[in-house]
Design a protein around this nucleic acid. Structure first.
Ligand SMILES: [Zn+2]
Ligand SMILES: [Zn+2]
Ligand SMILES: [Zn+2]
Ligand SMILES: [Zn+2]
Lengths: 155, 155
DNA sequence: AAATGATATGTTATAACATATCATTTGGTT
DNA sequence: AACCAAATGATATGTTATAACATATCATTT
């Protein structure tokens, strides 16, 4: 069940910080949850709105940005720079470093899916770059298109 | 010589619109030139500043944005969404449709180079997307890394 | 030459996105 | 309790972008 799945992700994150000074506070948990339950990427301001609606308590935008930055550091979320929106990281728990997050974004319904492009394909891109005199590093890919649902319902 | 090369690009653009109602006005020419002579991508506001400095005449930011939109339509420039900056299209004149522009961006000196990734490699990306249930369309790639110069001068 | 229409630009306001700075609160440690 | 670091609040400001409306410029038609 989705509810449990979300709780598990939060538990894992909590464990991760149990020993350090870092805290997974109520606000952080709530915002992580907002990202997790949303079907689509949200802007910082949409997150703040959602927070207000869900908890009848307003949160400053500044705090949202700070928490998003915290999430970015901790690999709990990502920013989509092509849309200025934020998504939870799908690489739950453990070992993901998310150095080069990769997304498929539907131009119609706005869903975004975090994928893992094979080393082989990424290697090809690196080769192309090298030929042009660049050595790639932390390249986030945001690929646009239409999801199957939206292709089906095309007018 | 760079100066002549720029003039040639502008001439080509002018020709392109000679018959249509669309005009390559002084402001558009100047802004295209600003983009062309800059070593690095510029923000809309930097373009406006540059315009003011170069021509001792101020231009409203709004106008800059409109001209950049015009350039985008006409495939004369592109926006880098990862940095909110603008670059001239390198596919001069003729046949480029630039449906999926591709860039290498140096994280140190900020240079950006427009490249052409082979159909084969792009095809691989499309395959990955299809497997995940997405059909790609107009995906701009912004690959980050270090250019050769900056790798050499690394501390 | 005057009227018209299309394209381009100016002007002002505001939306949307993001960071800087300093004060205060919170929660764990000694 | 006293202390300290982390987190949050509050306010101001910076940055990027569009909306809405008015005016200017230039080519075409009358
Ligand atoms: Zn991730
Ligand atoms: Zn869709
Ligand atoms: Zn191009
Ligand atoms: Zn460089």
């Amino acid at each position: 069940m989705k509810e449990q799945w979300i709780e598990r992700i939060i538990e894992q994150a909590k464990d991760k910080y149990a020993r350090t000074g870092v805290r997974l506070t109520t606000k952080r948990k709530r915002i992580l949850k907002i990202l997790l339950v949303s079907d689509i990427p949200l802007s910082a301001y949409e997150i703040a709105d959602s927070y207000n609606n869900a908890f009848g308590e307003s949160i400053p935008e500044m705090t949202v940005y700070r928490i998003l930055n915290f999430f970015e550091q901790e690999h709990l979320s990502h920013k989509l720079s092509s849309t200025n929106k934020y998504v939870p990281c799908s690489h739950h728990s453990n070992s993901c470093t998310c150095e080069a997050p990769q997304f498929l974004i539907c131009g119609k319904c706005q869903t975004a899916e975090e994928i893992s492009i094979s080393k082989a394909v990424m290697g090809e891109l690196e080769k192309v770059a090298l030929k042009a005199g660049y050595s790639l590093d932390e390249s986030q890919l945001e690929l646009k298109g239409l999801c199957n649902k939206c292709i089906g319902s095309e007018e």
